[in-house]
Design a protein around this nucleic acid. Structure first.
Lengths: 165, 165
DNA sequence: TGCATTTCGTTCATAGTTGTACAATTCTGT
DNA sequence: ACAGAATTGTACAACTATGAACGAAATGCA
């Protein structure tokens, strides 16, 4: 029973991944704290950031990019709209979808929030040289690709649709 | 307004940190899915793993290690105790604290759960060479140290206690 | 000893997240 | 054109997480 204990922490991959998860959690918590004065939470900022990149995106696609469920968007977006940060305009080509846009006020807040986030990230990533910073980012992007591919395969074997092929 | 957009994503630190956060999120989600057959959730596994390292730890110290609030432990631990995975024994030296221990059943489940987690981590970390894996882990540990130090300083300036010095 | 302060765990109200079921709309294949 | 399937956003219930207030126990300091 004790071998398991040793085994886990002697495994470099395990040890180093745990370090990644812990750092992530701490940075997220710090971000939440520093965003509080703007009355924003990390999910709101994620939405704003993605909206700057993809004006007119649908709720579904946004949820997909953020790796959360659609219902999550239904909870968050209306309250951001009431706050005047975003607009949800119906798409007349497909009347099911709502296309999302940042308002001027939303962009102004985005600027301040992103400044906070960027400063925090600059601080935490400054523990690594630019070269190591790229190594880390590259590894994480490969990891993300791997996980998304995994999910896709899992979906294909579980659903009935693809079995036709 | 558009300069901000470019500015963010041209900043290597920003871009690479976002990759870290996304990978983390995906791995967490995958872990949750693979743990479902054992009827465990990531927080439970975190508790179990830390309990293997630190038999007899208090709820408070455990919460501190896991970077969550004490009330979180109060929510999770009793239900794990009822399930027979852990025991909470009062400390007769200090009758406020409850010392935590894994039961035999808890250890058995831990073994299976850790096998699942290790396999997943091995898979995702296999996108990096052992050398890069260490670079990543070292960076994240420095980052964690930086954040904890930051918090400590923040606490010291806010509380009254340390002002005596 | 006595009293203020701190620490540990709990309680509870609040807020955030998820999955499922649903109505409206669009797409597909005949 | 039309029936069946898929997609979009919503509603809701169940679950999870968090922070503040609390009581009990311990500690520090006169």
């Amino acid at each position: 029973m004790n071998e398991m204990q040793v085994q886990m922490w002697d495994n470099p991959r395990f040890r180093n991944w745990v370090a990644v998860a812990r750092a992530c959690q701490l940075v997220q918590q710090a971000l939440a704290r520093e965003l509080k004065p703007l009355d924003l939470k990390p999910p709101h900022l994620d939405i704003i950031v993605n909206l700057m990149r993809s004006e007119g995106i649908s709720q579904q696609d946004l949820a997909h990019k953020l790796l959360v469920g659609r219902s999550n968007m239904t909870m968050l977006l209306p309250q951001m709209e009431e706050r005047g940060l975003i607009e949800r305009r119906p798409d007349q080509a497909d009347r099911r979808v709502l296309r999302l846009h940042l308002t001027a006020q939303g962009k102004a807040l985005a600027k301040r929030a992103i400044a906070i986030q960027s400063d925090l990230i600059d601080e935490v990533m400054s523990v690594s040289s630019p070269e190591h910073c790229e190594i880390i980012g590259d590894a994480m992007r490969r990891m993300t690709a791997l996980m998304l591919e995994r999910d896709k395969i899992g979906m294909a074997t579980r659903t009935r649709k693809e079995q036709k092929a």
